[in-house]
């Protein structure tokens, strides 16, 4: 089976971000970017499927400007076989929105015929958590979101997926092809080792212009303003439980 993995280039988890002067977006010029952590987990799972001889080919797909190739290279260094770079100059943290991303992926699906899409459950820039669900809807494939365990059946016709849900864990079986989204505890991604970093240079990345896919890329949501979270004000101390209750009541919280 062929597994497609989405890899998004997002602001690095440790980077300190600022808001643009016009308050229309986060300022991403000269901020350290990296592979979205949940996408990295998805890549790791796909590579493990390949190592278990369940998957024959793992293809890493990223949408974005030319620097998106950096995260594809990282996926290749982790063990993906080849990459597809869908080029666009739209900002992937807010201009290119989940529905357009899902439509791009659906268009690629028709052309390349993967047996599964493995995606991160969300990206840490826009935190939308929508692409996997929308992609499954567009393709009319089953979806298994928030996966913490993925087991593909011997005949490769279905997958048993353990999902992290509010009440605990839910185990479902989905026929393949399907869309699976990775939660935090699915695996611990490997480091890209030096020999694999070198080998990744020889792997192929195909480039496709997003505008050539016949997909409406326009956003459905307009960002009116981006603002910093309110600064937390200092708390106060109370003497005892009675005083606490009195204060909570006085503040209308109880």
């Amino acid at each position: 089976m062929r597994v497609f993995v989405g890899v998004k280039r997002a602001v690095d988890y440790a980077a300190k971000v600022r808001i643009q002067a016009d308050k229309k977006a986060v300022d991403i010029s000269n901020v350290k970017m990296a592979i979205n952590p949940f996408c990295e987990i998805a890549v790791e799972e796909a590579v493990r499927l390949k190592e278990k001889k369940v998957a024959e080919e793992v293809v890493a797909v990223s949408i974005g400007p030319k620097q998106a190739q950096e995260v594809i290279r990282q996926a290749l260094a982790m063990g993906a076989d080849r990459g597809i770079h869908v080029t666009t100059d739209m900002r992937v943290d807010q201009e290119l929105q989940p529905l357009a991303v899902a439509k791009i992926m659906a268009a690629l699906t028709g052309e390349h015929d993967p047996s599964a899409w493995l995606l991160g459950k969300q990206a840490i820039d826009d935190d939308s958590n929508q692409v996997a669900q929308m992609l499954a809807g567009l393709l009319d494939w089953p979806q298994a979101t928030f996966a913490s365990e993925v087991e593909v059946s011997e005949d490769k016709k279905s997958a048993t997926v353990t999902r992290e849900i509010d009440g605990g864990l839910q185990t479902i079986e989905v026929p393949l092809p399907a869309v699976i989204s990775a939660d935090l505890r699915l695996n611990e991604p490997r480091y890209a080792t030096l020999p694999n970093i070198m080998k990744a240079k020889k792997k192929k990345i195909d480039t496709v212009d997003a505008a050539s896919l016949g997909v409406d890329l326009a956003g459905q949501i307009e960002v009116l303003e981006v603002s910093e979270p309110a600064t937390r004000e200092a708390g106060s101390k109370v003497e005892d439980v009675d005083a606490l209750l009195a204060k909570l009541k006085a503040d209308g919280l109880l």
Binding site: V11, D12, Y13, A14, A15, K16, V17, R18, I19, V26, N30, V31, K32, P37, F38, E40, I41, Q122, I124, D125, D127, L184, R185, E188, P189, V226, E228, P229
Partner: peptide, 28 residues
């Protein structure tokens, strides 16, 4: 875990925009 450190320190929520004072990062 490594991934957990990453997600936790950013917060997989609106905290993604929090400019926490103790984070490394802005080396530009």
């Amino acid at each position: 875990t490594r991934a957990a450190m990453r997600v936790a320190s950013r917060g997989a929520s609106a905290a993604a925009l929090t400019p926490a004072r103790h984070m490394s990062g802005a080396t530009t």
